[in-house]
Simulated assay, not measured.
Amino acid sequence: MKTMMAGLLTLLVLNTDMAAAQKKSNDGDLTHFPKGSTPAEIGKRVADRFVASPHPNFGKPTPPSRITYPEVCAWYGALTFAYESRDKGLAGQLTKRFEPFFTTEAAIVPAPDHVDHTVFGAVPLELYMQTKDSRYLDMGKRFADKQWGTPEGPHVKPESQAYADRGLTWQTRMWIDDMFMITAVQSQAYRATGDKAYIERAAKEMVVYLDSLQQPNGLFYHAPDVPYFWGRGDGWMAAGMSELLRSLPKDNPNRERIMKGYKTMMASLLKYQAPDGMWRQLIDDPEAWPETSSTGMFAFAMITGVKNGWLDKATYGPAARKAWLALVKYIDENADVREVCEGTNKKNNRQYYLDRGRITGDMHGQAPLLWCATALLRK
């Protein structure tokens, strides 16, 4: 009897241990999700919402004078999602949306004279990779090349030429947002052409920003004179490093420095993730509200890191999964994401950030959901 009881006890302990191990494994599982929260379902809903939406204008009721960067980011995300989900119908709709830029909507194609305008090139470059239509390549390269071309246009600053003389883009501003706007189009140009010059100069630029702006805790102030860790600002940097590292050749001399900056940031973000999976409007401020665009960007960075083996799956997989499942709860019946911080300039005032408007359906929030869905589907 004692032997039988001992055996049953051992079996119970083993089963408990196995269940605990299985639960731990499932917590970090980035492949299987409950029905209604799978990347295929969510990505499709948000992408279809994008297709049905008019060109946004930062919340204004009037049409934009030029295509805005939040739309570009969502468009890029929808295209990559269509590719990874093998949804040819969606890809066709996204391509059709672009066609007027060669004719009736040519006037609202932005000029490549500022980082927020030049990122537009990421979309035609993605279209070229998916369709092989040379019109898209020609347009996309024009944007990528101009970013490192001769300074000209209304946004040229006195320091623009000095940056160009250092081998940086003349569009350099030392705002953390730049590190997505610049790396996205340059990485895309490299992927489309195979010309390493594009991604090499983006990597050089990233190192300058890391050396200049990253704080000892791994995060980034909104600006050197604004000592606040604004969520979406840091999100642009996290997403930008992820996009760059995803394609940066392993023999690039700047890869090690960028990877160090990326991993330091990811480790810091782990400490500030709320129990519900969200990150906050001010990352390190427990009184700040949960904000979706930054959470989406950080989740994308962690998903990409785990999928590529840069981050430990047992550590970062659960954080990424928890963030994704939390974000899904912020999507309403129209496939609009809630609690998106409105467009935000810098200001050395904590209350300014806490009081920012919370928008529903803004492309700043829609885009990261699409990036996450794509990243979760990538092998």
Rank of each mutant, 00 (worst) to 15 (best):
P290W: 10
F33M: 03
T103E: 14
P227G: 11
K96G: 06
Q366P: 04
M297T: 00
M206G: 04
S242W: 05
D178Y: 06
F180H: 09
P70T: 08
K157E: 12
A202E: 03
P154V: 04
V226I: 12
E159F: 08
A274H: 12
I303R: 01
G28H: 06
S268A: 14
A223Y: 14
F298L: 02
H114W: 10
D87H: 09
T103H: 13
L14E: 10
Y136H: 11
K2G: 13
D251T: 07
G194K: 08
F120H: 03
T172R: 12
A373Q: 05
H222M: 13
M181N: 01
V306N: 03
Y128A: 07
G231C: 08
V306R: 01
M5K: 14
A238V: 05
S187W: 00
K132M: 12
L248R: 07
A375G: 00
K260S: 11
D276W: 02
A326P: 06
G305D: 07
V46Y: 02
Y209F: 14
D48W: 13
P64A: 04
V328G: 01
S65K: 15
N334W: 01
Y330R: 14
Y128K: 06
T62G: 09
F58I: 01
L8K: 14
G121N: 09
L327Y: 00
T315R: 15
D17P: 01
P70W: 04
V207M: 12
A314H: 13
A189C: 04
G343D: 04
T360K: 04
P39T: 10
P63C: 11
G140L: 02
L14G: 13
A82H: 12
G36S: 11
W310P: 00
H117T: 15
A323C: 11
G365E: 00
F98V: 09
G305C: 09
G365F: 02
A267M: 11
T131W: 02
W75M: 08
F98H: 11
G153D: 03
L311G: 03
A40H: 12
K307W: 10
T68D: 14
G140Y: 01
F180Y: 15
S268F: 03
P224F: 02
K132F: 01
E287G: 06
W175N: 00
A288R: 05
K379G: 13
A184Y: 02
G317F: 00
E200I: 00
A326V: 08
E333M: 03
S268V: 03
M181I: 04
I42A: 07
Q351Y: 06
K204Q: 14
M174S: 09
A202N: 00
I359R: 12
E105R: 15
Q281P: 01
S242C: 11
A20C: 13
A197E: 12
D17I: 15
P151W: 13
N252F: 05
R356G: 04
T374Q: 13
R135K: 14
G277Q: 03
K24G: 07
A52W: 09
I199H: 09
Y136E: 06
D251A: 11
L311R: 02
N334H: 08
G218R: 09
V207H: 05
K132A: 10
Q215E: 15
G194A: 07
K263Q: 15
F102G: 05
